[in-house]
């Protein structure tokens, strides 16, 4: 103890210096493993992928690898499949996000009201979200199969279909298949997020509004919606990007078919890389998709800025 006291009365002892360095380094040591991994497995491939977009890289062609400049982008400009995939992406993303959000909001409002067995119901309606996406895709593909699934027969009975056929092989209807699966799988995400936001609204606001004579619809439009608005905005923004990139269901259910009618940009990239093994062209499409998503995000940020300034 005496020695320790003597040591520590000397200003700037070595121990304190080492302590100080260790203290400075601590957060970096903790984050380093995660960061190194992210850099090696995400950032390096990202940069590599950007470079592939300007090179001729075909896995099965040993003579490929050369620099081709903007060749891929010129091809892309004349690629009708790509532009169809772009249109399909808008359709796929728009319909999926809208339906997921609408059903998610309704579900959240239903679950916000206390009732007996709410905990169990909540667990059950959120269950689809835990189902692996490949299984979701397969299962819905089976349900749309008239041999084994009930859906074509029901749709026929309701008069929506002329015959109990598989909509996944009908070019004009096929996109509804993956969209249905996506909605089924993705509603819980919206419902959970919105439910959390709903339950954060102070109850006494509703009571005050009721005392002031506001009806149910009035309360919803003047309290619930304004309170939910920020959550709705951020969730929709993020989900839109996520769903635009989400190719699993399409790869599993239709593989882009029939006649490329369900091919979205993300699944087109995967097909080019996985089936055609043309890594250069796949990367070029990926770069275009990345640029489009960045423009989209920037527009959203700008929109938010102008809205904030006006408000």
């Amino acid at each position: 103890m005496a020695i320790a006291d003597a040591l520590s009365t000397m200003p700037g002892t070595r121990r304190s210096l080492r302590d100080r360095v260790a203290l400075r380094l601590e957060p970096y040591l903790y984050t380093a493993p995660a960061l190194i991994l992210i850099a090696a497995v995400m950032l390096v491939p990202l940069v590599l992928g950007l470079s592939y977009a300007f090179r001729d890289i075909q896995l099965l062609n040993p003579f490929s690898g050369g620099f081709v400049g903007l060749e891929h982008f010129r091809t892309l400009w004349g690629d009708a499949n790509f532009f169809r995939a772009l249109r399909n992406t808008l359709w796929w993303t728009g319909a999926s996000v809208f339906l997921q959000f609408a059903l998610g909001l309704i579900l959240a409002l239903l679950l916000d009201r206390p009732f007996a067995g709410r905990g169990l119901v909540q667990a059950l309606v959120f269950l689809p979200w835990a189902v692996p996406t490949f299984l979701t895709g397969l299962n819905w593909a089976w349900m749309f199969n008239p041999v084994i699934g009930p859906l074509p027969h029901w749709l026929y009975a309701l008069g929506i279909l002329d015959a109990p056929n598989n909509i996944l092989s009908d070019p004009s209807l096929a996109m509804w298949g993956p969209i249905a699966a996506n909605v089924w799988w993705g509603v819980p995400f919206f419902a959970i997020t919105l439910l959390a936001a709903l339950q954060a609204i102070p109850r006494d606001l509703y009571e005050a509004a009721a005392i002031d004579g506001a009806g149910a619809f009035r309360r919803f439009s003047t309290i619930t919606l304004p309170f939910l608005a920020p959550t709705i905005a951020i969730t929709i923004l993020l989900r839109t990007v996520w769903i635009a990139n989400f190719a699993d269901l399409i790869v599993v259910m239709t593989n882009g078919g029939p006649a490329d009618r369900t091919q979205i940009v993300a699944s087109y990239i995967f097909t080019q890389a996985f089936k055609a093994l043309d890594f250069g062209y796949a990367s070029a499409i990926a770069v275009v998709l990345l640029v489009l998503l960045m423009i989209y995000s920037m527009l959203i940020v700008l929109l938010r800025q102008t809205l904030l300034e006006r408000g």
Binding site: L35, I38, V44, L46, G49, Y52, F270, F279, S297
Partner: peptide
């Protein structure tokens, strides 16, 4: 710590870009 905001931004960024574009480079 210095650089914390950048690290958080970097991690958020990795959540935004299409992972499918990494399929080819990672394979290579």
């Amino acid at each position: 710590f210095r650089g914390r905001a950048w690290l958080v931004a970097l991690m958020l960024l990795t959540q935004m870009f299409p992972l499918v574009m990494l399929v080819a480079p990672i394979f290579k």
